[in-house]
């Protein structure tokens, strides 16, 4: 028997389902919601919320920032403040929501990993873009009740001041009923 001929290792188990307040579930086919909310539209800057996908446990969407000419040089910073200080990064992108029941969430809060929070959570969990465009994928937990959802963004480093918009919460709520559970986990 050769040195490397050890019995093949068994495959590792699937990772556990991520906490529902941090990410969309990975065993659900979410429902695409054809909504777009324009937050800022000026002669030089466009900020929109789009690409909504509804799940039984919440919804995700993309905030897209498009500059007409000036290059955006700053990365659209992470959702959490720098781990060492706990102080919010003054220039970082932030997103917040006010749900129909009046409860509020901001991406600068750091939700617990283990215990279910007793308030809603919004996280900007993955981003990208280059040149004049930046975008962040955002996740809101839980699914809001049927009613208007207020959305707020701020990105001081790109001179995006606190700006409010409204989402059709009913459309998101209804779309979630179209999502499909693929298998139990």
């Amino acid at each position: 028997m050769g040195f490397f001929d050890a019995p093949a290792p068994s495959p590792p188990p699937l990772p556990p389902l991520p906490p529902p307040w941090l990410f969309p579930p990975d065993n659900v086919l979410g429902a695409f919601v054809p909504l777009r909310t324009v937050l800022i539209r000026s002669s030089s800057l466009l900020v929109v919320a789009e690409r909504f996908v509804a799940y039984p446990t919440g919804f995700e969407f993309t905030v897209r920032v498009q500059a007409r000419e000036a290059m955006i040089t700053e990365p659209m910073a992470a959702d959490a403040p720098p781990p060492t200080t706990g102080e919010p990064d003054g220039g970082a992108f932030r997103v917040g929501v006010v749900l129909p029941d009046g409860s509020r969430a901001s991406s600068q809060s750091r939700p617990a990993l283990e215990d279910e929070p007793n308030a809603p959570v919004v996280s900007a969990y993955r981003g990208g873009g280059d040149g004049n465009e930046r975008h962040q994928r955002c996740w809101v937990w839980p699914l809001p009740s049927d009613g208007p959802v207020r959305l707020v963004v701020e990105w001081p480093a790109a001179r995006v001041k606190e700006t409010w918009g409204e989402l059709d919460g009913a459309a998101i709520h209804t779309a979630a009923e179209r999502s499909e559970l693929l298998w139990e986990r």
């Binding site: 600068q108 707020v152 606190e162 409010w164």
Partner: peptide, 15 residues
Amino acid sequence: MGTFFDSFPSPDPLP
């Protein structure tokens, strides 16, 4: 600047 984000407390530093 607005007031929404300033109304949230800073989270505790990570261990």
